[in-house]
Design a protein around this nucleic acid. Structure first.
Lengths: 109, 109
DNA sequence: CATTGATACCTTGACGGTCGACACATCGAA
DNA sequence: TTCGATGTGTCGACCGTCAAGGTATCAATG
């Protein structure tokens, strides 16, 4: 199995929003979850993760709350705001638009 | 229809390689072709296009030759090299891997 | 004949996201 | 007590993209 390939530039925000859309998660868990769900293809570095989380929080799309993690440690749990959910929908649509377009170019030469 | 959305970071090389894989094209035509085939979703800025072409040429994946364009003007026609074709296959596979992985995260939350 | 728009090449600077590397702390297990 | 996993964070460098500018030719328009 190939090693994880990091990311596609510009998709991290969407991946994060999606990952916490069902239930709040802390940063570490978000990264693990993305890697796991992607079948070990996507890998989120901490140097990408935390700046992204802070970016999203500052834009009001996610909200942070300190709580106890599964391992009984303090961790920052992030949840979607209403604006964040809307943003997630938008970015999802945009990703579908773009990836479809790229597939078109690949197929139809 | 919606305005073009430029690009997904990191996919331009693949788009270019694909676009000249059937027959050689000059830079201007490559950009037009990508936009057209993508259904006006992808837009390649010149500030992205020409550096990319030079990059690809320097890496030996494409080769340039001056010739007369459809409008009877001198234009640089780019064609795939053998290494370029191999690179194209690789990048195609990688794109499929990554976009599939992203779709997985989007679906399975 | 002058101007405009399309074609066709190119460069430059700024921006912004990602990476790799660090630093720090806690907890459980060996 | 040492190690690995968990958990947060920062920093600098890198690199692709964008917006904007420049040059030149050609056909069509006025």
């Amino acid at each position: 199995m190939g090693k994880p390939s990091d990311l596609v530039q510009g998709t991290l925000d969407l991946l994060i929003l999606r990952t916490i859309s069902a239930e709040p998660k802390h940063g570490w868990a978000i990264a693990k979850r993305i890697q796991q769900v992607s079948g070990d293809v996507l890998q989120v570095q901490q140097g990408s993760l935390y700046p992204a989380l802070h970016r999203l929080e500052q834009q009001g799309w996610i909200r942070a709350k300190w709580a106890e993690s599964e391992t009984r440690r303090q961790a920052k749990f992030y949840s979607l705001t209403a604006a964040g959910r809307k943003q997630m929908e938008q970015e999802t649509a945009n990703w579908n638009r773009l990836s479809t377009a790229i597939d078109l170019v690949i197929e139809r030469a």
